[in-house]
Nucleic acid binder design. Sequence first.
DNA 1: CAAGCCAGTAACTAATCAGTTACTTTGTGG
DNA 2: CCACAAAGTAACTGATTAGTTACTGGCTTG
Lengths: 225, 225
Amino acid sequence: MEKAQAGARGTNGNGARAERSAQRDPERTRASILAAATKEFAENGMGGARVDAIAERAGINKRMLYHYFGDKEQLYLAVLEEAYIGIRTAEKSINLSDLEPEEGIAELAMFTWRYFLEHPEFLSLLGTENLHRARWLRQSTRLKELHSQLMGKLSELLDRGRAKGIFREDVDPLHLYLTMAALGYFYLSNQYTLSTIFGRDLAERPSLEGWERHIVHVTLASIRR
Amino acid sequence: MEKAQAGARGTNGNGARAERSAQRDPERTRASILAAATKEFAENGMGGARVDAIAERAGINKRMLYHYFGDKEQLYLAVLEEAYIGIRTAEKSINLSDLEPEEGIAELAMFTWRYFLEHPEFLSLLGTENLHRARWLRQSTRLKELHSQLMGKLSELLDRGRAKGIFREDVDPLHLYLTMAALGYFYLSNQYTLSTIFGRDLAERPSLEGWERHIVHVTLASIRR
DNA sequence: CAAGCCAGTAACTAATCAGTTACTTTGTGG
DNA sequence: CCACAAAGTAACTGATTAGTTACTGGCTTG
């Protein structure tokens, strides 16, 4: 049928890869499978996701999915790993050295909130993974080494604030991190049942902005002397 | 095979229901299906739950499940409704009229935390329902009417605390409720991924007790003047 | 330029799953 | 005491699903 392909056929040899529209492009195929699988797993969970649906979304043949990823479980693990790497990479780029301790904590709280807000698929994958008691995360050697960059930055800010006398002496950095994460995660991941029961759309702009301010307020109030 | 049943055969007529071990007991059958379905849906989500597994767990024939509940989706809805009714019923029994505002808020925060801790299947069902954007909850007329009793009690305590001058003027009761719920929900529902990544078992007694104290502390710190 | 490997396709298969059919057993009211 | 309804069983069915087989076409390297 499509034997005679119009343009972009040339050997494009000498090492450098063709930038676009190659008929055979392993990296692009792999990436589009991963993107499609991320959506499918995030929308339907591990149990509800369909391999055929992933193949269709990616615009590839199902056989390729098995070629690149082995099976459904390994594909899911690849999706999970990529999602974690995404947030950990983003965390690295935060620079707080110029900020006062309180400003720095506020900045980290807002970063976490905004990252969750902009990456609903990450929240959904976390939910699925916890439903299965971290079955796949525990298998992943890559992810177990991948510590949160936030924890280090949090500790440093807590030290500075303590030295200035504005933060309490006994704040556990893990508790602080969990507090920020919990407030963002719960609001967003449970927005559908909450909106239904309280008859108030939590996804509206003013509500979201109000909750961001609330997170910053609660986080700071919990550590101030 | 078991045609000749030993005891407990009698007509046990005159209106009153037999208390135990009837061969045919609609209510008991229904209840055991519901209990089995709650476990299965909580463990595997809507997509991962298996109708045959529910029947086996309940010790009944699959046909009965369709007889009493119609289909898988209606059974899931019945499970969800029962779970919500459970927490709302428990909330009703809390009496706070003798307590000072601060003590009352602390009591409600601990109630929510302990209810979550003792009913992991409720958290799991919430997660599944939100994955599907409250698809079944929105259909349920029973549940949309079922407002949280906690909200009313929270408002009353906030009023009293405000009158005493110990709470801020602008506290939104919904924000307060979401704060308490978020801190409990996130810690428990995400305990598996969190424990894996931070290399610290969040399910251990001392950690759980520490987090309960933390929830009370954060909740009160966020509303104090 | 040909040999071999890698990307890609279509159609198939064995297993699984939600839901059904056709039947038997048990309790009850006229 | 029997007729009828409700409770219960076993075996089946059609659709879906993860994973496979057997194949084609194109790129690279010696």
